[in-house]
Nucleic acid binder design. Structure first.
Lengths: 349, 349
DNA sequence: TGGTTTTACAAAATCGATTGCGTCAATCGT
DNA sequence: ACGATTGACGCAATCGATTTTGTAAAACCA
């Protein structure tokens, strides 16, 4: 079992030997946290050490530093699912801020399962992450309170939880915007496609949607909890069309499921938006492609704020939950007078 | 500056004190690599130690283990861009295999810039990653050879490089498939939308496309190197329409840019596919949504294989580059007789 | 000039876990 | 019955860096 990881990395000890000083001095000079290295050694010594570091190709051993200082300069991000557009965008934002602060963001997927979440969370704590960001908070189970009691620093992103600091979209308003728009274009038989109700992204959006509808004096919408992907959208659409009267206004709280539903409606010969209007969520490239009316929120910004809040917390500053603004982007899936291919959102690549 | 990371984690020392044995014994019993703990202690001792570990809530300190063993059970993944569908899917595959092997995958974006790539790569080596996976290989610059000489274990994914082990799509065949299809439906004025030519995903696809066209005796295609996102696709389309004759067959080697081009063509009143046929790449949800003919390759599988090869390498097994099969999924953007919303690909969420 | 402070650096402890080398007693084989 | 093996464990070194403590020499003050 050859443990040889390439040629051995040079250590401070070697630099010390080369220059003829102690490792203590080397450490002080090379310590990036040290604002004034010259307090500790003469100018020549400092120069000699730095020179030696360069010629030897010295690099800090991040593990050793962390072990000693209990500071890993790492934040862990738990997401229900990697490979998903929403999560990928959020993580990109987190990652961006992380490196702006000389930190590293590491991620792991939990598949939204409590067991895996605990496991991954512990694995990250084993690496002494400075803090955690959860994108998969459930509103019922409260594993997070345990963590809080243990003094673990964390924030939530995307989904919120009343007891913890989070950065989320204004889901209540989003629900109202979607409902209002459907009402304004004269729809009365409404339906929602969503996922399990244990996440705030479902509950809040449904809540806002229903509130608006109730205040307009309309019938409450049908709620189809099929899921967040294309297939889930199709399934929901099939269910809707099992027996008339069919809905004439659908809000899928995710563009992918909107796409699935849309394709089914079209296959069945329904006209969108005349027969059935559809609204999505996230204003993703999919929405641009199919001219889908959608709710826009900056996922990138959501990711950024979630880690900025976490870093503030780590600095001991007081932090509060934030709610990001949302806006309705109207396109042809609810308004056939709109131009084709209008209003593309933020471009990432 | 309170360095208090919550309540101090229990250590082997504490367990040792509690049970009344040395840390050595505790370490041997609790070491997960140790196949037969009973070789080192009596059954009672083993039980007592395990019991103490549980009651104290003991967890391994991954950093300390790595420092000692020079094995971090971590692989680093360098991607040109997080937040991109392609990269997110690949990473999801990598992450899956990583945890199947009790490892952790950490990622960082390089924005395709050599400087950042080196920086991130070093940052990962500082954490003593067991190996690296590069999704952003350039074919000209050869930073990777330096790494190889240093004995750093790595594989490439998505993009390939003749000198290194990689897992990529059969881009040459993909190019041929796209060209053949366009030729078969009678197109003669062809164009490609791609990105810089320093990546194999561009060069190979173009190569295959051009080979097929040459062998068919047609004119070589126009090559528009505008980029990989929606805006790039629009830009390319605008350029194409600057002066007639316009292309009647376009291959965007990425669905997003295909979408951008498509929307421009439609805005200009062109009929797709009658006036201009469009093919994309990756068969992403965007393609499903707009009924875009596209090239399918399993990105998830690509990710999985890239880390599996890396792990094989780490085990000292010989590994060779792999090329994943591709297939053409024909939809309405090249064949108006196809049904709406057909053949959805692998669903991820 | 005697005493205090600052400078410049070193020695050693520490972080948490692993591991080579021993020790001591019980057991085994012949 | 005696050397040899095995079982059950501990000591101390080690990984690479940081931190605490220590101590000469130089600088400063009155």
């Amino acid at each position: 079992m050859p443990t040889n990881r390439g040629p051995a990395r040079p250590t401070q000890r070697q630099i010390a030997a080369l220059v003829g000083v102690s490792v203590t001095t080397v450490s002080r000079i090379l310590n990036p946290e040290e604002s004034n290295p010259f307090r500790w050694a003469s100018e020549e010594t400092v120069e000699a050490i730095r020179q030696a570091a360069v010629t030897l190709g010295y690099r800090h051993n991040a593990l050793a530093v962390s072990l000693r200082t209990s500071r890993s300069h790492t934040v862990g991000v738990l997401m229900p699912l990697l490979g998903d557009h929403v999560m990928a965008m959020i993580f990109a934002g987190i990652d961006e801020v992380a490196r702006e602060h000389g930190m590293m963001a590491i991620t792991a997927s939990t598949l939204d399962e409590p067991t895996i979440r605990v496991e991954r969370s512990l694995a990250m704590q084993d690496r002494l992450v400075d803090g955690l960001i959860f994108a998969d908070a459930h509103i019922d189970k409260d594993y997070l309170s345990t963590l809080k009691d243990q003094g673990v620093a964390f924030t939530l992103v995307h989904r919120r939880h009343p007891n913890h600091v989070s950065v989320s979209a204004d889901d209540l308003l989003a629900g109202r915007l979607a409902a209002r728009h459907l009402i304004e274009i004269g729809r009365t038989r409404l339906a929602i496609i969503c996922r399990h109700r244990y996440m705030s992204t479902s509950t809040d959006r449904i809540q806002g949607f229903c509130d608006e509808i109730r205040e307009a004096g309309l019938e409450p919408p049908a709620v189809l909890e099929t899921g967040f992907n294309v297939v889930a959208g199709r399934d929901a659409a099939y269910m809707m069309m099992e027996h008339p009267p069919y809905p004439d206004g659908v809000w899928a709280i995710n563009d992918a499921s909107a796409l699935g539903a849309l394709s089914v409606f079209r296959q069945r010969g329904l006209n969108v938006p005349d027969d059935v209007a559809i609204i999505g969520f996230y204003d993703s490239p999919v929405a641009w492609g199919i001219d889908l009316t959608s709710i826009r929120v900056s996922l990138h910004q959501m990711g950024r704020r979630s880690i900025e809040l976490l870093l503030d917390r780590l600095d001991g500053k007081p932090v509060e939950s934030e709610i990001l603004p949302v806006s309705l982007i109207v396109r042809r899936s609810t308004d056939s007078t709109r131009p084709i291919g209008s209003d593309l959102g933020e471009v990432v690549s």
